[in-house]
Simulated assay, not measured.
Amino acid sequence: MTTPLTRRRFGLGAIGATAVLGSGCLSDLTGSDDHEHEHEDPPWEWGGLYDLDSGTYAYTYQEGPDPDMQFAFVSAEEGGDHGLYHAGETATDLFEHGDADVSVTDGETVQPSSDTLYRVDFADSGETTMELEVESGGYYSIFTAHVPDEFEAELLSEDGEELSPDATERHSTHGHSDDGHEE
């Protein structure tokens, strides 16, 4: 059984000429450390990294535990766990310092942004779908205040094919009461 990746456990060990910091990011052995970080659990609960072509993707949600949710959609400079880790730094900053003043409702479109924390306002009942617009192919990450399973969320290609993330990270920064709402 594999242990899930967390900010503290990212890449434990040594890789070639690099050593892993306790904070979870790689640093070279010469002492230069452009990547010094110290994160505990970030303010988002789930992050996923996708390799997406240019186009429009449907992100669908079923009814879930809350009437709205914070959501970040950011580009990543590389794939895999390392790309997700660094995109997660951007998302952490958005979740900690953003106001989620950009509301997204059923049928609206969002674009990747390192400056915008969205708030998804779910439909009162049934499915809520937002469109993710990608202008150029590459790696993109989605960070949410809930695990997608809580809303039976699916990211779908233009052909309606369900897409799976190349890498994911999950945290339990908040709990849910018996009725499912954030505590």
Results as ranks from 00 to 15, higher is better:
2 T>S: 01
2 T>W: 06
3 T>Y: 07
5 L>C: 11
6 T>V: 14
7 R>A: 07
7 R>I: 10
10 F>P: 01
12 L>P: 10
12 L>S: 11
12 L>G: 08
13 G>Y: 10
13 G>E: 12
15 I>V: 15
15 I>L: 15
20 V>T: 14
21 L>N: 14
23 S>R: 13
25 C>E: 08
25 C>Y: 11
27 S>F: 05
27 S>Q: 14
28 D>P: 00
29 L>K: 15
34 D>W: 15
40 E>I: 12
42 P>C: 04
44 W>P: 06
47 G>R: 04
48 G>A: 12
49 L>I: 11
49 L>F: 05
49 L>D: 04
50 Y>P: 05
52 L>Q: 08
53 D>I: 04
56 T>A: 13
56 T>W: 00
58 A>R: 10
60 T>R: 07
63 E>W: 03
63 E>A: 10
78 E>T: 11
79 G>D: 12
82 H>A: 14
82 H>G: 13
83 G>A: 07
84 L>Y: 06
84 L>P: 07
86 H>L: 11
88 G>P: 02
89 E>G: 11
91 A>K: 01
91 A>I: 01
93 D>H: 07
95 F>N: 04
95 F>G: 01
96 E>I: 02
97 H>W: 09
98 G>S: 02
99 D>H: 00
101 D>G: 03
103 S>W: 14
105 T>S: 14
105 T>C: 12
106 D>M: 09
107 G>V: 00
108 E>L: 05
110 V>T: 09
110 V>L: 12
111 Q>C: 06
115 D>W: 06
115 D>E: 15
115 D>M: 00
115 D>V: 02
118 Y>V: 09
122 F>E: 05
123 A>K: 06
124 D>P: 02
126 G>N: 00
126 G>P: 04
127 E>A: 05
128 T>K: 03
130 M>W: 07
130 M>V: 13
131 E>P: 09
138 G>Q: 09
140 Y>I: 05
145 A>D: 09
145 A>W: 04
146 H>S: 03
146 H>E: 12
147 V>N: 13
149 D>C: 02
150 E>I: 06
151 F>H: 13
153 A>Y: 03
153 A>G: 01
155 L>F: 03
156 L>Y: 04
157 S>Q: 08
158 E>T: 13
159 D>W: 08
168 T>L: 10
171 H>N: 10
176 H>W: 01
176 H>M: 04
177 S>Y: 01
183 E>R: 08
183 E>Y: 03
